[in-house]
Design a protein around this nucleic acid. Structure first.
Lengths: 209, 209, 209, 209
DNA sequence: TATGAATGAGGATTCATTCAT
DNA sequence: GATGAATGAATCCTCATTCAT
């Protein structure tokens, strides 16, 4: 904001190779995830992208619009990653395992529903629809993978939407840390394993209960 | 500003029976849950409590402090309710079922972690600790119930903290509605049943893995 | 805004006797008249009133609302002044003369229609109605005075609304100054006289047309 | 931003026949009249002219300069039209009638003084002079017509500047509409007739007063 | 206990303007 | 002749917070 820090020194190649609009979106996405909608300010988006606020507004007319774009991008990444991983020809359990591992390392792991909820009062009808749409698309893609396994008999027949949601819900648990920074189990790998095991057992049909 | 916003004449008995400080806390709790930390304003807390903003500040020095009190109260309620329900002498499954039912009807059902996260940057060290403490207390209480069942052999031995978290996490799923307002299953009862089934099967030990 | 100039020295009695809300309105009215809606800034309203911007917003929720209040106040003053002058028992011509004289000395003399037009895109439905209403009220009051004279036979029967508008329109001419600061006639009194003469002759019925 | 807002393919002949600089001026003039100086944005001038903002700045260095050009053009049009109409050899009253009719149909009919006033704080010394000059030129031309009639004895001897101003002032009244969209008289023609009659009677010398 | 009045600090948004290409 | 990208400087508005009474 003050004393333009922009032109000092040579910009890192990596940074400048990416178009400004994309860089803004990346920064914003990160900020929104870290801080939520309200806590993240357009000022900081600009600052961290090394542009002025006006530049941010040049590309995104409002904060709500920038947020919408961020969510859509996020959903796309999640969808593509998930589908990519789930479409390999390893055993289904292995694929799930890999997916959980990837997610547990990703920045991406917020309870998306929640910060969408926080932003909701600031979004207009159209933005809400766009976000809902992109969210459903992501869910549908993951759901389709599950559905395929059910058809193949690998997975018991089930309400796919339900188990998709459960899956994405337990996925979030990999991020848990208590006040001492400890997860549920000594190593992340163990946590992942236990989550998968829990999920896997959970979705089995009730045979003898 | 002008023209007293408070009702003229005699206040409703119900309203006045409750001390102002408590009424403020109740309003605030509801507002925070509905709108999150940032979206909820001290102005609206005051307005809805039928007092002035200055009165709110008379009882709670800062918004962060009010929030802290709200969370602590919330945790207490959740803890007491959970323990009460889990301590009856029905079968464990029935008790879980009842618990899920109660939660799915409660306003209380937000992903608490998330709005705590949203408030975090506004809280000071001490407030953070208080909140963490009350959260853990709640968890511990529920955990203790699970642990008891494990000891009795009703529940397989397990990482109690882990399954407590899973339980509270899937609990949230009862609130799910798609864009058409539909839950996962035709009736809420079915959804509850399915969630319990998932959880119940999930915590069984892996016999043949 | 910076380095509060407020508390230095003793506030002038005159200034402090008037409630802040009124002082803000006075400043704003003057500013809007001098500079128009867009050119007048809330910052300057605050500055000139010796309060902070937030104080201005404490009393008036938006700039549009402040503007609306200013117009309404202005109309009231104009109406009251006009009616007061027009209701004395001098000859009608003398009363008109006095009215024109008063107006030509008043700050009040802008083409009101025009700065209302400038503000219009910023006003909401309700504010527009309020303004229209207060404008009509003013016109109606002046109109009523003209109508009374017509009934008394002092003034020829005529479309009162029409002549009221003409009157208010030519009233504005008293303010004319060319690039050298000269009005139409050597002295303001002469200009006033000529305007009245024009108006007076204009409203006479066409005898020989 | 992205996705050319201009029409693809071959531009309409009509559009391209006119040089860009002129098209910009036309758009700007219309916009300034419709919305006033501040409300009209360079962005919209560009948008409506189907060029980019940078193109507008290529032809006009600042908004104030564009405004100045618009006013000068406007004055020229008004002057030429007025003179053309006033120079025919019909009776003077008929010519005035025609003039009023033309003006009442023109978009051009704003109280020019007022939006000049609105723009004033944004204009520099030179621009102010240019505008004043072109305004005076227009007035002088109309004044000259009036003066000629006075010499011919058609019009009573009078302060020509004064009656020119009065004339242009009452001209504006043709545009009046109340909140129901009604003018002063049932038809525009009647209104025009009444305005002329008023003006005509108004400027007669006081013979018997 | 409770409040009306006032404020400081920030945050979103707009817009005329510049400049390298 | 024309443009896309970027910016500086306002400007409106919000909100938690304070303080005298």
């Amino acid at each position: 904001m003050s004393g333009s820090p922009r032109h000092l020194g040579r910009p890192r190649l990596q940074e400048q190779a990416i178009p400004t609009k994309v860089r803004i979106l990346q920064t914003a996405t990160k900020l929104f995830i870290e801080q939520g909608y309200k806590n993240a300010s357009m000022d900081e988006v600009a600052l961290r992208t090394n542009v002025t606020k006006a530049t941010v507004y040049y590309y995104y007319k409002t904060k709500a619009e920038l947020f919408t774009a961020a969510i859509v991008g996020l959903m796309k990444i999640i969808r593509e990653n998930s589908v990519a991983i789930l479409s390999t020809d390893e055993t289904f359990e292995n694929r799930l395992h890999k997916l959980v591992t990837v997610f547990s390392h990703a920045t991406v792991n917020v309870d998306i529903n929640n910060f969408i909820k926080e932003a909701t009062p600031s979004l207009n009808e159209e933005q809400l629809l766009i976000i809902q749409h992109s969210e459903e698309e992501m869910h549908d893609a993951v759901e389709a993978c599950f559905a395929r396994e059910m058809e193949k008999g690998v997975l018991p027949l089930n309400n796919t939407k339900f188990i998709t949601h459960i899956f994405l819900s337990v996925l979030n648990m990999t991020k848990y840390r208590d006040s001492n920074g400890q997860g549920f189990f000594p190593t992340p790998e163990q946590t992942t394993t236990e989550i998968i095991r829990f999920f896997w057992k959970g979705i089995q049909p009730s045979t003898n209960d």
